[in-house]
Amino acid sequence: MQAAADKKVLLEVEHLKQYFPVKTDSLFKPKAYVQAVDDISFKLYEGETLSIVGESGCGKSTTGRAILRLDEPTDGKVYYSGTDILGLNKKDMRKLRGDLQVIFQDPFASLNPRQTVKQILNEAMAIQEVVEKSKRMDRMQELLGYVGLPQEALDRYPHEFSGGQRQRIGIARALAVNPKLIICDEAVSALDVSVQAQVLNLLKKLQKQFGLTFLFISHDLSVVRHISDRVMVMYLGKVVEIADKKDLFDTPLHPYTRALLSSIPVPNPELKRERIILKGDVPSPINPPKGCRFHTRCPFATEKCKTEEPALRELDTNHMVSCHYAENFK
């Protein structure tokens, strides 16, 4: 990795909040909100892969959607190459969408079943007007080559492909408009391991080839370890830890990260590890616990944790953590 100083920030998220109102049965009760993402900030450097990991309801997918303005965020700023995306009008935002692409978990649900691959790719290019009409055919063939699909694929429909191939179509569509940043939202989660390996290799290859930046959202820590440069761990709408991959996996500083890492079943029966099993469920994001949001399940929680919310602070170079007692885990 390059030194921090000469890395260029591509995307900067500041104090992002995403609250969703919850319907209440009573006319008089105050409106409740799901605090899906609650005041998070992070930077994404050009050419890197930053992963967001966490369990369901931690806000990782919501963060991705908010950056793309698929849901309008409640508050905060998202700077892309210096411009605040959230302040852009529709027209400018549409232009920018060419730079920001997304690949979803279920490629089948995100591809129009009545369009052939050709139509899907053509439409993507037409919307962004990146390629002249006369050159689109060449471009499409080129794209299929990049993602490892045969040329015949152009005239076929999504249902004629396997899960892994469909995900390749999704990747080709994202690439069609020459993006800079691709948000991969659980992009390989639905795939079998052998297919998952192929898609992961492809993503890595394309990143090198086109200098892409990835925001990789996943719940699978092994996959995250494989693909990321840096990793951000979220819990109940908050960032609990951000670090370079090696630091995060070797010396996790937040008790939640430690529990998460120790919970993953490892395909190696010889390896005996100390396992931390967390008690109970993740609390509801409608009324998240006061103080540190993890204190209800944390084996080390003290009185302070129940009342005082820990700030995200830099404990080591590029290693940020939000725990009052993170020093103890060094």
Partner: peptide, 16 residues
């Protein structure tokens, strides 16, 4: 087994 990403080691490319 080879196509699994490993949690305890780094690999450049996964076997497929």
């Amino acid at each position: 087994l080879d196509s699994l990403p490993k949690i305890h080691e780094d690999q450049e490319e996964l076997q497929t």
